[in-house]
């Protein structure tokens, strides 16, 4: 676990950001419900959730590759080509 702690941190960031995303979504849901008075999540809210999820997925990938570049850099730096059958 000594040299893989960053993957645990990465998973924790993913989990925590999902929770923050849901919290933001709850604010959005409460806000939109003030206008239509509906207790149900409407199509707009579902679409917002999908957009937020895609945004999260892109951000997570960016974080993984950029924030942990110091570690992943060991892998992504071109050193020697190794091909397999």
């Amino acid at each position: 676990m000594r040299d893989t702690y960053w993957i645990y941190m990465n998973l924790f960031i993913a989990w925590f950001s999902i929770l923050i995303g849901f919290y933001l979504l709850s604010i959005l849901v409460n806000y939109t419900r003030q206008f239509n008075g509906s207790i149900f999540i409407n199509v707009f809210e579902v679409l917002m959730a999908v957009v937020m999820f895609l945004l999260w997925l892109t951000l997570w990938r960016l974080i993984t590759i950029r924030l942990f570049k110091r570690i992943i850099g060991k892998l992504s730096t071109y050193m020697e080509p190794v091909t397999y059958e």
Partner: peptide, 15 residues
Amino acid sequence: KDQRAPLTLVRMILA
């Protein structure tokens, strides 16, 4: 250590 290789979880574990 080749940037063309996919970034899998096992590859991360072996970083």
